[in-house]
Design a protein around this nucleic acid. Structure first.
Length: 425
RNA sequence: GGAGGGAUGGCAGAGCGGCCGAAUGCGAGGCUCUUGAAAAGCCUUCAGGGGAGACCCUGCGUGGGUUCGAAUCCCACUCCCUCCGCCA
């Protein structure tokens, strides 16, 4: 949720900033007017309440003094005030319900430094690391699902038999590679991030307040008999942990990492990049997430990006860093860097990490604040990025490591974790 | 799953119809004293909203209800603790 005060205090500038995210102006006008309406009704409620409180106190005084009849008379008069309060409260609730719905459709403000643009075509390529097209000339690369199926380390058909499309089943060295990748990532980042092993199912309230469950979109799976949702990313429990808390400033920044399974319904994604392990309903990921002071979020974002890049660098995978343009930013994000690994098997760049700053957008809905040293409280900023999303990185390792004899050579950094140098099936 | 007990400010913990946003202690901040520190003393210290301000409104797990008036009484829910059962 954005700060609605921005709409009352500086409407034009705010509308201009949001226009870069294609937010219609009339939605903002509606939100501003509802906010103003709420303020007015609230003031009326407050006044009526004050009257009520004063009256009630007077009743108490009269009773104590034994002036029963006067007290009864005053009580009768107060019934009117009571009705007025009730009526105004109903009004206020209606306004608030509408306002909540309208406000829920307003995305976060894009950072001013983010490039203009409407779609991914306008994203800005910042740099490429470890990629030289010449490396791939004269070689043929099979897609990972073909290499892996032949080696017997991936069985897509049985995965489908068990669970349907977009699920994976890894065997032998393939399963070990997955486990090794997770351990590799957790070890790599433990110098800066506290490892958390969180629950994988969370309450409606928690997932809603992280912004991963809205009326318009639900990627998450719901448990039938309980008010619980399977997490679509480790970010949900990591950011949910501190909801409603006021943190000491000295605790910030709080940097966490968690290895979790992630479940996503991927509604509407059928048939799109779904071969092999490109897009799954269930996958494994090491997520990095943090809370920090607003003044630190820019430098923390840079550091977080560097950390996520380290994961790929250590594996020797060629990747590029893309800064998303305003129009391509996700709803909550203020600034996003995507990390894309080159996949020689399909000759495409595949997104393996999305490193985001959501400023105070998530903290406002989650009520995550900190107590400032100078006094007072303020909302924290939150950031997150994939430390290592296993399916696509797994796939990239298979494609890059394929050798003429059909086996796959693993990156040296993984050998201690997987226990072998070459996957032979 | 069954039976009890509980949920109050940063923490501990009183309060059990009006004088309670709330005693007391700890913690934190400021001041006095001191060469400095400690100790001692004095003061301040929950959050959100409205108002130029005086000040006002809201919040005692959450949601309803009773009442002129609810932290306090009633109902439902959530969570925590103890015991029993089951169990990786």
């Amino acid at each position: 949720m954005i700060d609605l005060k921005l709409l009352t205090d500086d409407f034009e500038a705010t509308a201009a900033r949001l226009a870069r995210k294609r937010v219609p102006r009339d939605l903002l006008v509606q939100a501003r007017d509802l906010g103003e309406g709420r303020r007015q009704v609230t003031r009326q409620v407050d006044d009526a309440r004050q009257e009520m409180n004063a009256g009630s106190q007077a009743v108490g005084r009269l009773m104590r003094e034994g002036r029963r009849e006067e007290a009864d008379a005053l009580k009768e008069g107060l019934a009117d005030t009571r009705h007025r309060i009730d009526t105004l409260e109903v009004q206020r609730r209606q306004i608030e319900a509408t306002l909540d719905e309208v406000a829920a459709r307003i995305p976060n403000l894009p950072d001013d430094a983010v490039p203009d643009g409407a779609s991914d075509e306008d994203n800005r390529l910042l740099r490429t690391h470890g990629y030289d097209p010449a490396d791939y000339e004269g070689h043929t690369y099979e897609p990972h699902w073909e290499v892996a199926a032949r080696l017997g380390i991936y069985d897509g058909e049985r995965a489908a038999k068990l669970s349907g499309g977009m699920f994976s089943l890894l065997r032998g060295g393939g399963a070990r590679l997955l486990r090794g990748l997770v351990d590799y990532a957790l070890d790599l980042h433990r110098d800066r991030y506290l490892e958390i092993a969180p629950p994988h199912a969370v309450r409606s309230e928690v997932i809603t307040r992280t912004g991963h469950l809205t009326k318009f979109e639900s990627q998450a799976y719901k448990l039938r008999d309980d008010d619980l949702w399977l997490i679509p990313t480790g970010e949900v429990p990591l950011m949910g942990m501190h909801q409603g808390e006021i943190l000491p400033e000295t605790d910030l920044p709080l940097r966490y990492m968690a290895y979790t399974v992630c479940w996503r319904r991927e509604a509407g994604a059928a048939g799109k990049d779904t071969r092999g392990l490109q897009r799954l309903h269930e996958f494994h990921k090491v997520e990095l997430a943090e809370l920090c002071r607003p003044e630190d979020s820019e430098s923390e974002l840079a550091a977080l990006l560097a950390d996520c890049e380290r994961s790929l660098q250590g594996l020797g995978l060629p990747y590029r860093v893309v800064e998303l343009c305003a129009g391509d930013l996700t709803f909550s994000a203020s600034k996003v860097f995507d990390l894309e690994v080159y996949s020689p098997g399909v000759d495409k760049w595949l997104e393996v990490s999305s490193v985001s700053s959501v400023t105070d957008f998530q903290a406002r809905r989650g009520a995550i604040r900190y107590r400032k040293d100078g006094g007072g409280t303020a909302l924290v900023h939150s950031l997150n990025g994939s430390g290592l999303a296993t399916p696509r990185v797994w796939a990239a390792i298979i494609e890059h490591g394929q050798q003429p004899d059909g086996t796959v050579r693993l990156p040296p950094a993984l050998v201690p974790y997987v226990g072998i140098e070459i996957l032979t099936g």
